[in-house]
Amino acid sequence: MTPATAKSAVLLASAAPVAVIFYRRSRLTTYCLLLDYERRGKGCRDQLSKGSRFRGRLFPERSHLSPDGELLVYFAMQGQKTDGRSDPSTWTAVASPPSLTAHLFYPNGSTWGGGGLFLSDHRLMVFEALPPGAGPEYQNFRKHRILHDANSLPEDEAAALKARLKPPQVTTYPWPLKARGKRQPAIVRTARPQSLGSYDHFDYVLQDGDGYDIKGAEHIVLANWAGWDMYGRLMVAAGRHLKIYEFEPGRRLGKPTKTLDLEAVI
């Protein structure tokens, strides 16, 4: 049997220089890593920390990082499918990354539903029913109010939630900084047909403000993930590497300023 190609997916905190990386080293072995990219002078720390080693499957598209980067909600499956039997054990958990040890644990038992999404004002939507005997921490945990009914959400949050669960065919992510006198460049993400726990759910293209592909960025089409960090740097994850680019609108994309080797951390 040919071993699976290593793949990686990144979850960025929205309000802190923190990211969680799922590094799927082989078909059923994934490492959870933490990236601290706090600004230091003219550069960034870009320090990786090793977390849990997980035997099974983690679902990046059903996982989410809190705005401050201190909590992670994830959906997992442990074991392998067998002919004539139901899905192996699955669950949703809330943990402190890069550890996957569950503070809150929601058994599922199938691949329907699962996972969660952090909302504004310290709210966490979990797509699971409360487990039997759930204590008060399943209502409020570390200043987060935990919700289970998406029908009560405001219209804008309900739309964002729908887009998360069923991504549109094309999504545009503008550069997070103001483009000086120029139209906003963007990452354009195109959805592929999805397979279970896929790390290749999307294709990525880097375009300028007029919708033309930026020269030098052709290789990100082959990436497992691409996104902007909070300082406007381009991050590209592919296999065992996370490449970081200092991006400047109006210019071709040069060589990465840093390449982090995920394999070297584990």
Rank of each mutant, 00 (worst) to 15 (best):
G135V: 04
P136A: 15
V94I: 15
A95G: 07
G113P: 06
D121A: 14
P88N: 09
L100M: 15
E128W: 07
S89E: 13
P88L: 08
L100S: 13
P98G: 14
F141A: 06
D121K: 13
A160K: 12
R85E: 12
T82P: 00
R85D: 06
T111W: 08
P132C: 05
N108T: 06
A95Y: 12
W112L: 13
L119H: 01
V126T: 02
P136H: 08
A150I: 00
A102E: 13
A160H: 04
G135E: 13
G113Y: 07
A159C: 02
P107K: 10
D83E: 10
L130C: 06
S152Y: 01
K162W: 01
I146M: 05
L104Q: 08
E128S: 14
L124M: 04
S120E: 10
L104D: 06
Q139Y: 04
S152H: 06
L119T: 00
Q139K: 10
G133F: 08
M125H: 09
M77L: 15
T111P: 04
L153N: 04
K143W: 01
G79M: 08
A95L: 10
A129Q: 13
H122M: 04
F105E: 04
L130I: 05
N151K: 06
P88R: 09
H148Q: 06
R145T: 10
M77P: 09
L100P: 10
H122T: 02
A160R: 14
S110Q: 00
G109P: 06
N140V: 15
L100E: 13
G114V: 09
F127S: 03
I146E: 04
E137L: 12
G114D: 05
E157S: 07
Q80W: 02
D121F: 05
R123I: 01
A159S: 11
K162Y: 01
D121G: 04
T90K: 11
P98I: 11
D149L: 08
L130R: 08
L119E: 02
S89I: 10
S96D: 10
P136W: 03
S86E: 10
K143F: 06
S96W: 13
M77G: 13
D87S: 10
L147A: 03
P98N: 14
H103E: 13
G114Y: 04
L130P: 04
H122P: 00
D87I: 03
R145G: 01
H148T: 11
L153P: 05
L153W: 02
R85V: 06
P131A: 12
D156V: 09
H144D: 05
P88Q: 05
F118K: 02
E157F: 04
F127I: 02
D156A: 12
P97E: 10
